[in-house]
């Protein structure tokens, strides 16, 4: 009887940690650093927020092109997936029509890479928040 109660308690705790993990993953993807902030890792969360946001904004200021979903070109599709990793930064930027102008300066190419890498780094951060939530990482 005691063993059954302990098993049930363990399963409940594991299920709760699992749910929290997925919430941290989604929050971290939507808003950079939100996953860590949700888990009260204030320093890490703020650093992730500042780094990813700065990288994205600097990329846009350099004249980056935001990739749109399409099936015409494999590189465009990969670029879109990278951009999408930035979560709301990309979704809001795309809905506002940013990054649609034709590339005219050489720094725009650097900017596009900044935006894609910001998205990819944000995905790594979101997965890190998930790992913390489920106890895989301290």
């Amino acid at each position: 009887m005691m063993a059954q109660r302990e098993d049930a308690a363990k399963q409940s705790a594991a299920s709760k940690a699992n749910r929290l993990g997925y919430m941290a993953l989604v929050a971290g993807w939507l808003v950079p650093g939100a996953g860590h902030l949700m888990l009260k890792r204030w320093g890490r969360g703020l650093l992730v927020l500042a780094s990813i946001s700065c990288m994205f904004v600097l990329g846009m200021m350099m004249g980056a092109r935001l990739y749109a979903p399409n099936t015409a070109d494999l590189l465009d599709m990969l670029g879109f997936l990278g951009d999408l990793g930035a979560g709301l930064l990309y979704l809001v930027g795309h809905s506002l029509g940013l990054g649609q102008a034709p590339v005219q300066v050489v720094t725009a190419d650097y900017g596009a890479k900044f935006v894609v890498v910001a998205g990819l780094l944000n995905l790594i951060s979101a997965v890190d928040a998930h790992s913390i939530a489920v106890g895989r990482k301290p």
């Binding site: 890490r44 780094s51 990288m55 350099m62 720094t107 650097y110 900044f114 890498v117 951060s125 997965v127």
Partner: peptide, 27 residues
């Protein structure tokens, strides 16, 4: 808009990427 030099761009890129790598790859 801004147009930083290639080296400035590299330093910015390295700074932000290193911060994220440090946070995510170590405990």
């Amino acid at each position: 808009t801004i147009a930083p030099s290639h080296f400035t761009t590299v330093i910015l890129f390295a700074t932000f990427a290193s911060i994220i790598f440090g946070i995510t790859q170590r405990s």
